[in-house]
Amino acid sequence: MAQNRQPAPVHQHRHRRVDHIGQRLLVNATLGISAQALVEDRVLDEATATGDVRRICDLFDITVETALRYVGLHDA
């Protein structure tokens, strides 16, 4: 005899969720540096490689003023 089982309502399902802080700690522990430091390193590397402010702005979605600071760090 087959049992007639109703699916559990969505609110009764338990999902494991990693909060934003937990994800950040996992990334930091895995990389050994913060995600922010990694982004800054990539922007500075691009500024060193190309010096193209427009390209840096488009690639990293930062303002012209911010890109100029990175290019200025390279020139200094």
Score class of each variant (00 low, 15 high):
35 A>F: 07
31 L>T: 00
7 P>S: 10
44 L>C: 04
71 V>M: 04
34 S>L: 01
50 T>P: 01
24 R>W: 14
32 G>P: 02
21 I>D: 15
47 A>D: 00
54 R>C: 01
23 Q>Y: 11
33 I>S: 10
33 I>K: 14
59 L>Q: 09
17 R>F: 07
44 L>A: 07
75 D>K: 11
46 E>R: 00
7 P>L: 11
52 D>Y: 00
12 Q>D: 07
23 Q>T: 04
21 I>K: 13
37 A>F: 03
62 I>T: 07
70 Y>Q: 10
10 V>G: 04
14 R>P: 06
43 V>D: 02
76 A>C: 11
58 D>V: 05
3 Q>F: 13
51 G>M: 02
52 D>R: 04
3 Q>Y: 09
19 D>Q: 05
32 G>Y: 02
36 Q>A: 14
23 Q>I: 08
42 R>T: 08
69 R>P: 01
2 A>F: 15
10 V>F: 15
56 I>G: 06
19 D>S: 05
2 A>L: 14
58 D>M: 05
43 V>W: 05
4 N>S: 15
60 F>V: 02
40 E>T: 03
73 L>K: 10
16 R>W: 06
41 D>S: 10
16 R>T: 13
65 E>V: 08
30 T>L: 10
51 G>F: 00
67 A>V: 02
75 D>Q: 13
47 A>M: 04
6 Q>H: 13
49 A>K: 03
